[in-house]
Every structure is written in structure tokens, then in C-alpha cells.
Design a protein around this nucleic acid. Sequence first.
DNA 1: TATGAATGAGTATTCATTCAT
DNA 2: TATGAATGAATACTCATTCAT
Lengths: 211, 211, 211, 211
Amino acid sequence: MAVEPRLGRRQAVKALKRELILDAARRVFEADGIDGASLRAIAAEAGYTPAALYFHFESKEAIYAEVLKASLARLAEAVDQAVAASPAPAARLRAAALAFFGFYAANPRDLDLGFYLFRGGMKPIGLGRERDEMLNTALAAALRPIADAAQALGVTADAANLLMVDTFAHAAGLLLLAHTGRIRMFGASAPQLMARYVDAAIAAVGDGRGL
Amino acid sequence: MAVEPRLGRRQAVKALKRELILDAARRVFEADGIDGASLRAIAAEAGYTPAALYFHFESKEAIYAEVLKASLARLAEAVDQAVAASPAPAARLRAAALAFFGFYAANPRDLDLGFYLFRGGMKPIGLGRERDEMLNTALAAALRPIADAAQALGVTADAANLLMVDTFAHAAGLLLLAHTGRIRMFGASAPQLMARYVDAAIAAVGDGRGL
Amino acid sequence: MAVEPRLGRRQAVKALKRELILDAARRVFEADGIDGASLRAIAAEAGYTPAALYFHFESKEAIYAEVLKASLARLAEAVDQAVAASPAPAARLRAAALAFFGFYAANPRDLDLGFYLFRGGMKPIGLGRERDEMLNTALAAALRPIADAAQALGVTADAANLLMVDTFAHAAGLLLLAHTGRIRMFGASAPQLMARYVDAAIAAVGDGRGL
Amino acid sequence: MAVEPRLGRRQAVKALKRELILDAARRVFEADGIDGASLRAIAAEAGYTPAALYFHFESKEAIYAEVLKASLARLAEAVDQAVAASPAPAARLRAAALAFFGFYAANPRDLDLGFYLFRGGMKPIGLGRERDEMLNTALAAALRPIADAAQALGVTADAANLLMVDTFAHAAGLLLLAHTGRIRMFGASAPQLMARYVDAAIAAVGDGRGL
DNA sequence: TATGAATGAGTATTCATTCAT
DNA sequence: TATGAATGAATACTCATTCAT
């Protein structure tokens, strides 16, 4: 009876410390880039010795994964909130797609994190099978509302899924280009192009034109 | 009479050796990732001492740039060939867009190289201002035919440019997703989605629906 | 009660290890020359990996500076002891000058270190502004007693200063020649020449012949 | 008969090329410091490939030695000229000593070269026994006039020799201090101190006070 | 006489991680 | 839980020198 509260307190302290380390990691990722961030730098920023971090995370990659997971959770929350405010299916589809795009457009740090998952091509992504699956699941959850809204508009589950993937791809492409200055280089506006894409997609669904 | 052929031979040998080193670099990029590739590894793969590479290239970054440049040249050539085979503007637009997408879909190594250009977000790209501009120019040249064909279809220069950027973004997004297994994960097909996107774009241009 | 001694012990161990590394550095300086000494060699001589030295010193230059500082401290102590044992001003002047000379004559390693400070002419000294100033101050402290004794003999502060510099120069020149075999080559004795110089200087001061 | 002139021409061309390389070496020594000068840099400055220098000099050290030798020859010439202009022995002694000092005071590059000979302490000086002896002989020749003048003033050969060495030492010390800013640091003037030293030495010789 | 290519040894410093304390 | 010390591997690049051509 005297022990349990203590354990709870201990766990809370432990969780707090983890959170402080993750905050430090985010700051270092922003300052040095994700690949350029070293465990030493994260530890220093958090007020720790490098060795100390190993009591809180099993490896550098584990820290990456944790930060990524939190980012994806914020993304999903942003999408969910947008959807919750939109009663009609078409508006929901629009809101979900634009919220997804808007989250990353507004939070370039999170975009860097997201792209980190996509680096390396065919090479092992480096975070381990289990972590990869966890992150993929989190990503899928953030995209789900798009497919759900499409289905509510009357298309089949398969078509809704394709539309979701296609929207994801378009957003990713535009964000990639915008993030690296290519959109500006060509004198275009990423949010406008995204909005146009979404409107065309909704129109196509309405027409029964498939996608 | 005896000297000139020798000189020619020498230059040919020199060019050949450069090419062998670049091939080795490509293999190492594929195996270790582009950021993970070290000069030592490239040298070893090419059968050289690290120091020897400095007789052929002035720095590691110069090797990167050379490999990237060659890749973009092959891309542009693929697009140009596809366009040359298509007389009508609509077919040309389709051919250019699908050739761009198809080149990277068929050559994942080149896709890795291409994405390397896009990494880092706000971080320095690391190849130096001059090399960066050269590479941007090469990329723009590969995309140009898309805008040209759109303009031939009757839209304004601005609209043609937007369509080119949007197509670029869609291709990039689909390739990114496909390359990292996300397309498969959602049970979709990147080439099909790309073709559908292009067809819709052509139809929109035909309708005078802008984009 | 159990903790404090431990901390003291730790600090003592740390200081001891630093000293062992500095000793190794001194041996390597002697063996390879100061410019020729590499961090690797110092580490190997100390029984460490190169990386390990970075836990004890922040850079190679920091090691150089530490060794130099310790040498100058020993020099100053030798001069101070000689002066402390000499009550009369003339004897003090003599003792200080000969102690300065004698220290380096007896410790050729320290002479090499001292000359290192003087190398490079117009080139950057390479230890950084702060360290340079610290070392200059330490050197000035070792010479101070010469000027003080001269002043006690009745000359002005300026004249005492000049005598100090001149004595420094004569000692440095003789040591340089002796250290590189030139004195022997000319069949002379550096200590004798130094003593003669000092005696002449004291006589000149006594005569009121200025310097 | 047709051959000899050609050989002479060839040797002249060869000598000229050597001289051009040595000039380049001097410029690089000045720019990068003597230790910092690389064979590559000297070759580039001379308009050659590094490998080409090996047809003119057997090693990097040989280039050092040649440049040093030329410097010492200029020194000896400066001393000889000063002596030639001074008929009386006392004036000759004064002129020789001040010319020695003045040459290095006016030509800091040559001073760097001269000190290079004196570096390294007990370590092999690095130029090889033969070259060392050649350079020592050249140095002795530049100092000889000092001893000769002293002897002309009536002291024994041994005393004249000692005076020469002592003068050498004093000049070397003052130059060392001046060259590295220590004279300025103590608010003194090297030429004044040197002149005073020489005058005192001449007075001592006149008194029959030994030295 | 000169070159271009090549070598092997060398440089200081950083990295993620481990382990005894 | 946290530290300080340590490791071994890695980094890009420079050096004087050699050798076939």
C-alpha cells in the first residue's frame, strides 16, 4: 500500500525524463538535421551524459522512433479534428486531405521526420521490423479518414483506398517539392495545387468517374 | 603521327577509368545508401586506394555530383526519346509524363540519387552552389517537355508550367511511396495511379478546365 | 563520510592519469620532435587509444599547452628558489640569471619546449590567443626576478627591464648554440660564457655604466 | 667540338631550371612556413609536377639544403662587404658583428631558414651528415671576420674565438626574441641592444679585460 | 626531361556503444 | 539512475615518393 503510490510516482518521473530527452532530441534534430544529430548532442541538450540515455532508450534508433511516433500521433490528431468539424462526406474528404497536407506544410520539422522514414530506398530502414510496423500503423491511422469519407460518398472500399493512396502521394510530392524549394523555383503554390487536386478528386467521385 | 593516337588513347583510358570509378560509386551508393557511402568504400570497390581517387576527382562531393549528373542526363534522354516518338500534343504530354515516371520506376538506383537532391530540407545540400545549380538545370530540362506539350495543347504558359509542376509532384509522391513499400502496403499500383492522373490532367486541359 | 574520500580519490586518479598522459607526451616530444609528435603516438605511448585522450584533454593543442605550462612553471620555480637563497641584490641578479640559464642547460627537453613557443616567425603559433597569452605570462614571471634584482641594485625600472631582456637574449642565444652543437663546434663552453656575460653586466650596473 | 658547347648550354639550362625551382621554394617557404611547405606546393609554384622535381633534386630535404646554402652565402657576402669597408680593426669588429645581426634583422625569411637548421634539438637535423657539415662551414665563414678582427686587436686566437661565439650567441638571442615579438613585448629595441653589446665587447678587448 | 597515376602511411577528430563504479 | 573512461571503427583528405610511359 505504501509501495504502489511510490511506484506510480517513479513511473511518472521516468516518463517525464523520457519526455525531456525526446524534447531535447527534437531540438537537436531541428538544429543539426536528423542524420546529423548525434547521441552526444542529444544527451548534452538534455543535460545528460551519453551513457545515461541508455537507461531510458535502448539505442539511438529507439529515440528516432519515439520522436517519429509522437509526430505521427499529432498528425493523426490534426486530421481527426478536421474531420470531426465536417458533417457532410464531401466536406470531410476535403477536410481530411487538406488537414494532412496542412499539418506538414505548417510543421516542416515533422515533415523532415516523416521523410526520414522514407529514406534509404531498398536498404533496411534502420529502425527494425517491429518499429517500422508500429510507425506504418500510425501513418495508416492518419490517412484512414480520407478513405472513410470517400466510402461515405458512395464509392467501393477499393476505390476509396486508391483515392486515399493517390491523395497521400500527391500531398507527399507537393510537400517534397515545396520543402526543397522546387515549387518556388517553378513559381507555383503548393497549397493551391493541393486544393485543386482535392477538388478534382471530389468532382470525379461525384461523377462516378471512378477514382 | 605517332603522338596523336597516343594522346587520344590516353584520354580514352583516363575517361574509362573515371567511368569505372563512377560505376563503383553507383554500386556503393546502392549498397550503403548515398549518405552512408564513404570514399574508402568507393575506392575499395573500384580497386583503388583512397588517395588514388584524388587523381580522378577533386573530392568526394565531385564524385557525387558526377554520378547525379549522369543520372539526370539519362532521365532527360528517356523523356526526350518518348516525346520524339509522339507527334500529337496530347500524346506527347502523356508520353513525357509517363516517361519521367517510368524512368524512375524502372531504375530505383536513379531514384535514390534523385531523392538525394531533395534531402535535408533547410540543411545545406552539400554539393556547393555551382553544382546545385547545374543539377537543378538538368532536372528542369527533363521536365520541360511536359510543359511544352501542354502549351501545344492550347493552355497559357503559366497553366502549362503549373501542370508540369503538379505532374512532377504526383510522380514524385507515387515513386516515393512505391519505393518504400507504401503503395504495396495499401494494395495499389503506382503505374496505374500515375496513368490515371495523367489522363485526368489531359482531359482537364481539353475541357479548358484550367490545369 | 564514505562519499567524500571517494570523490577525492577519483579526482586524484583523474589527475594521475592526466599526468601519465602528459609524461607520455613529453617522451614523444623528445623522440619525434614537437611538431612531429602525433596524437596517435602520444596515445600509444600512454597505453591509450587516440579517442581516449579526448576524455582528458580537449585537443592535441591542449596537451601541448599543458606540457609547456608545466615546463615554464618548473622554470619559474627554479629561478625563485635560486633567488630566495641569495640575500644581496648583486648575488640575486647573478643567481636569477644563472638559474634561468642553468635550468634549460640541465633540461634539454624543456628547452625544446621553450623554443617551440618561439618557432614559426610570422606564422600563427597555433595554440590559440588565450593559451599564448597564458604562456607568455608564465615566461615573464620566470624572468621578473632578474629585473627586480637589478632595480634593487639602484638602476631605473627601464634600465632594469632592458638588462633583463638582454640577459634573456644572451641566455637564449647560448642555449640555442649549445643545444645544436655549435658551441662545441667552436670549442667554447656555454656556462662559462653565460657567467662571464652576467658578471660583466653586474659590473656595468655597479659602475653606473647603465645597462 | 660541336658537342662541348651543347653540353655547356645544357648544363646552363639545367642550372637555370634548378634556380627557378629554388626561387619557387623560397616563395612557398615564405607563404606557408618552412615546415608547412610541401613538395607539391613548391612544384606547383614552379610550374612543375611533383615528380618532375626529382630530376633536379634528390629529395625535399635537398631543396631545403640548397635554399639554406644560398642564404648563408648571401649572409657571408654581407659580412665581407661590411668588413671590407672598415680599415681599422675595432671598426672591423664592430662592422662584422653588426652586419651579421643586420642581415638577419633585415631579412626575416633568411632568419627563418637559419633557425630551421637549429630546430629539433638532439634529433637528427634531417638534412644528412654531409649537408650539415657543408652548412656549418658556410656559417663559420660568415662569422670568421669577427674573430679575425678581434685577433687584429691583439687578443689571442682562443679569446678571439670566444668573442666570436659570444657575439653570435647574443645576436641569435636578440633575433630570436625580436622575431617572435618578445622584444616588443618588453618594450626594448633589438638593434640598440646589439650595438650596446658590441661596444661593450670592444671596450673589454681594449682594456685587456679578457673575453 | 617530364607526366600522370598510384601507393601506403599518416593526420586529428567524431561516433555509438559498453562497462565498472 | 547516472557517470567517466574507454574502445574500435570510421571520416575525408594530404604527404613524399616511385614508376611506367
